[in-house]
């Protein structure tokens, strides 16, 4: 699933490790989500959205809208 995680992270000057620490997940999880190899669960997606103070759809692009 496409997302703006890398951009949002860069805006805050956070490394993948910094974001992983804030989300309480591994750095490889952040990398996999950023590169679209892994779609986070709904609870993790909410956690990400709350961290950036945005709505989920402001971070993740619905697969039906990318076609």
């Amino acid at each position: 699933m496409k997302n703006r995680l890398k951009v949002l992270r860069a805006e805050r000057d956070w490394s993948q490790g910094d974001l992983a620490e804030r989300l309480d997940v591994s750095r490889q999880s952040v990398n996999a989500i950023e590169t679209g190899r892994y779609d986070p669960s709904l609870p993790l997606a909410f956690k990400i959205a709350e961290l950036f103070d945005l709505a989920i759809e402001d971070i993740f692009t619905s697969p039906s809208k990318t076609v």
Partner: peptide, 8 residues
């Protein structure tokens, strides 16, 4: 395993 990606 608490990390869902590692678990997957």
């Amino acid at each position: 395993q608490p990390d869902e990606y590692v678990r997957a």
